[in-house]
Design a protein around this nucleic acid. Structure first.
Lengths: 192, 192
DNA sequence: AAATTTGTACTGACCAGTCAGATTAGTTTT
DNA sequence: AAAACTAATCTGACTGGTCAGTACAAATTT
């Protein structure tokens, strides 16, 4: 079965080039498979892309979920969410940029809608963890959990980009610590 | 001079389509100008794109700077930074997505480098405001200002996207208030 | 008269998607 | 066990379309 080879190659090529610049020829070449095989296994470029994004989201959600099964204080839960997501962002920067950001124009509307839904699902996954924590402990500020989740994702993405273009400036642990601090405690010193 | 017409049209077309899907023919059409005029005024597509991104950054930086000239408490400064940037993100979502995110592959390396530099400059602009605030008031946590600036940008982008796809859920003021709260105070209730 | 703009037509490159035929693997017949 | 058959899988040359960039003679603007 060539499907796996194709997916592996497609992840590479989409990650390196983004959706539009990734060509089916390049993916076929990289997968050591004829172009026709791509179209035998997937109806088209955008469906192939969707498959990959879907797997990306499922992977990060499963990895995170698996680590949160035991009952943990919300503080520790947030730390682990950050840790797992930083893993993804740092290990495969381009891939995760695509997964989280690239809802590229020029994809058929129905596939685009599915991609948007996947993003929403992931956001709600994080939001529901926060929401649960809000009920069980009196530690979380009463803000909208979806916005809070969006803000966590945005912070991670943006700081990872900076981190990756200044590799000498910080360690991975410092980055993790920074993200945790800024997300949980904010910029201001607590003594108001 | 057709330059202005071209730039206005190019902003529209790039914003609607992103870099790759924006075509020079479409830009010419929209600017009511012959294609040749595009190439008379700009050496090529990527230089035109660069010009626009540059103006976008300059615009937001000038608008923000102008509003911070009077000496203001850092709290107010951060609020205004957020306000101006939300203006940009909300008024021209796609344009700002391009300006802040699209460092598209498939642009000549030298132009790409210039774009990256523009992003860095903008980040340092925000970071230096935070840095100055850190010295003058004892209100800001001692974290790296560049990471802090990156985190502000990331939070704004991510929450704006969510906001824009759920237009009924919040008002613009609520969004602004949320971003300010999350950035300055974080998720946790201050009483540790 | 110099700079700018127009319009049209053209080139060369790239690329998503197609398709008729080749190959492989699995099954049935002899 | 070999031969014949079948369906799934794979191949790669080819098609049609798009688009950046060019050419240039004529018109318009400054």
């Amino acid at each position: 079965m060539s499907k796996d080879k194709i997916i592996r190659a497609a992840i590479e090529v989409f990650s390196e080039n983004g959706y539009h610049r990734a060509s089916m020829d390049e993916i076929a070449l990289r997968a050591q498979v004829a172009k026709g095989t791509l179209y035998y296994n997937f109806p088209g470029k955008s469906q192939l892309f969707k498959t990959i994004v879907k797997e990306g989201f499922e992977d990060i959600m499963h990895r995170t979920q698996a680590d949160l099964n035991a009952p943990l204080p919300i503080k520790e839960q947030i730390l682990r969410i950050i840790r797992h997501h930083l893993d993804l962002f740092l290990e495969s920067r381009h891939f995760s940029h695509i997964v989280f950001n690239e809802l590229s124009n020029g994809i058929e509307q129905d596939v685009l809608d599915e991609l948007k839904q996947l993003r929403r699902d992931h956001l709600h996954f994080l939001a529901s963890i926060l929401e649960a924590g809000k009920c069980e402990e009196n530690l979380l500020r009463d803000v909208d959990s979806n916005l809070a989740a969006a803000s966590i994702i945005g912070t991670m993405e943006s700081t990872c980009n900076y981190y990756l273009s200044h590799p000498e400036a910080y360690s991975r642990d410092e980055l993790e610590h920074f993200v945790f601090t800024i997300i949980t405690k904010g910029l201001f010193i607590s003594i108001d």
